[in-house]
Design a binder for these strands. Sequence first.
DNA 1: GACCATCTACTACAACTGTAGTACGACAAC
DNA 2: GTTGTCGTACTACAGTTGTAGTAGATGGTC
Lengths: 130, 130
Amino acid sequence: MTTKPQDVVLSDLQIALMRVLWARGESSTAEVAEVLALERGIKHTTVATMLTRLEKRGVVSLRRDARQVYYQARVSEPEVRRSMVSELLGTLFGGDARALVSHLVDEAEIAPGDLEKLRKQLARGGREHE
Amino acid sequence: MTTKPQDVVLSDLQIALMRVLWARGESSTAEVAEVLALERGIKHTTVATMLTRLEKRGVVSLRRDARQVYYQARVSEPEVRRSMVSELLGTLFGGDARALVSHLVDEAEIAPGDLEKLRKQLARGGREHE
DNA sequence: GACCATCTACTACAACTGTAGTACGACAAC
DNA sequence: GTTGTCGTACTACAGTTGTAGTAGATGGTC
């Protein structure tokens, strides 16, 4: 059994694959490929290759059933977010999360007023930002 | 003249190099190499190679003077932050910056109380988070 | 003038990513 | 049974990154 990867940093395409697995749970290569073909016109074989490699890395697990391979995510979306955000935070903001938030505001990615709204929401224990 | 790169996504090491240029302005290969050698024990020639490649990519510009090459950043740290944060935002949070902030709070990267502090600071137009 | 120290440029190479073709095995349909 | 289809596995290949050695040019030193 491959040990669970700790530092999960994934590329754009890899995350796109994972998103399918996160959304639909265990999926066959064909299912994942179908989504990716629509989303980005990527060939079936390419998806198969990527999935094999992710499996080798321990990011997904596979189950074989009658000629088909079914993949399942071994890392959750929050886990990936965690490591990737924390990586970005480290390299670009010296680990200072407040600097990142302030950047977000400066870049108009987020309105200053949203911060207070968020604070209140989060204080209530609600995760629903909408 | 190489056109300025638009989508500047840099690796960890590349950012480390850039950080030297950002901090000290135009620097010789030797100067950059010295810092990187201390910081991560990276060889002089490695740094030279990386800088050449960054130049080829248009991320830094170079000036030759008496056997030596001086490099200067062509993209600012805020520019790099912008593209990299925005990239992360897109792939991992569906472009929703508030989701990212809320993630930061959930992961205890930031205290809920900080949000309000930040809001006030930012409202005052002050960037000084410290 | 010969030699040494520097510094750059070129070359190398392994790993990973994105991309996909080809071949092979198995199952289904006649 | 023979053939076609489907799906996987294997192979390939170019580009990027991290890493560094080697060689060649230049200039300083005696």
